[in-house]
């Protein structure tokens, strides 16, 4: 018994080490979406291209799509933009743009310069829809199914790795 007690610190250490090593791989800035498996919230916001045209949830929903939150003030959006263009053009993915707390002219200029991958662009100047969707930064990308249910949320840039390992499998799985 006396000898065995010497191993007590080791017994405490090993589980603690396992716990901490596992925590190294976690990204604390990635929050799970509170809206997972919930319908995308309703809204009524102008189109980015046509200020008089009001867009509603019903205008978007119908087939599965990505809803990409972006803004011209967001440097990572610049990084991700060529990827969105590629997804829309080469892979035929429907992407809806949610222009988040941005200036209309700057956003239009950006889309003209770097090509427009969005089937529709919602202009959310106050971040109202963003708030309802639990957006806390840009870029964020939601995967929404044909019934308008949010099935997945990716925080951060979309690149080759994210597309192949995360978004494509999710898109294939849902209808």
């Amino acid at each position: 018994m006396g000898r065995l007690k010497l191993f007590l610190p080791l017994l405490v250490f090993i589980p603690l080490a396992i716990l901490l090593i596992r925590a190294l791989d976690l990204d604390p800035s990635e929050l799970p979406s509170a809206l997972l498996d919930k319908p995308m919230p309703g809204f009524e916001l102008p189109s980015l291209q046509e200020p008089e045209r009001m867009l509603r949830r019903e205008d978007l929903v119908g087939e599965k799509m990505l809803v990409n939150v972006w803004a011209t003030w967001c440097p990572s959006c610049m990084v991700e933009h060529p990827w969105l263009v590629k997804l829309a053009r080469d892979y035929g993915v429907k992407i809806v743009g949610l222009n988040y707390k941005d200036e209309r002219q700057a956003a239009l200029g950006w889309l003209q310069r770097y090509e427009n991958p969005f089937a529709l662009s919602v202009y959310d100047v106050d971040g109202k829809l963003g708030l309802d969707m639990g957006v806390y930064g840009a870029p964020e990308t939601f995967v929404v199914d044909s019934a308008g249910i949010i099935r997945f949320k990716h925080v951060g840039v979309i690149d080759d790795k994210v597309w192949q390992e995360v978004l494509q499998p999710v898109l294939q799985e849902i209808d």
């Binding site: 929050l31 979406s33 509170a34 708030l131 639990g134």
Partner: peptide, 8 residues
Amino acid sequence: MVSRYGEF
């Protein structure tokens, strides 16, 4: 707040 941003 929780329905949008979770219990975080």
